[in-house]
Amino acid sequence: MHELAITQGVVDAVTERLGDTRVSRVVLEIGRLSGVAVESVRFCFPLVAEGTPLAGARLDIVEPPGRGRCRRCGRETELVDPLAVCPCGSADLELTSGRQLLVKRVEVA
């Protein structure tokens, strides 16, 4: 359940930037290769947000797929989960995207 710490990180990141400003919506980007369970973040968010300027805010999460470059054939390929392999069969992939864990934007009232 590192999602509890991750969700706390979301609330901290927002309040560090915006102080006491009331937040009505938070948009996160959680890459499919990030190792974070999106459903757990949704579960934790209202609990962590309670008593902060994010209390009651709507949470939207975008989950972009990963991308990787195959070290064997050089092809750039889309990766939907951490075990995905290149169409050529190789698992030797340099991950170029999909591990991001970002607070993209917030809406303030």
Binding site: G9, A13, R25, L101, L102, K104, E107, V108
Partner: peptide, 11 residues
């Protein structure tokens, strides 16, 4: 509402 772009890495 007003949108504020953060692009902040959670970690």
């Amino acid at each position: 509402t007003r949108t504020v772009l953060l692009e902040q890495d959670v970690l």
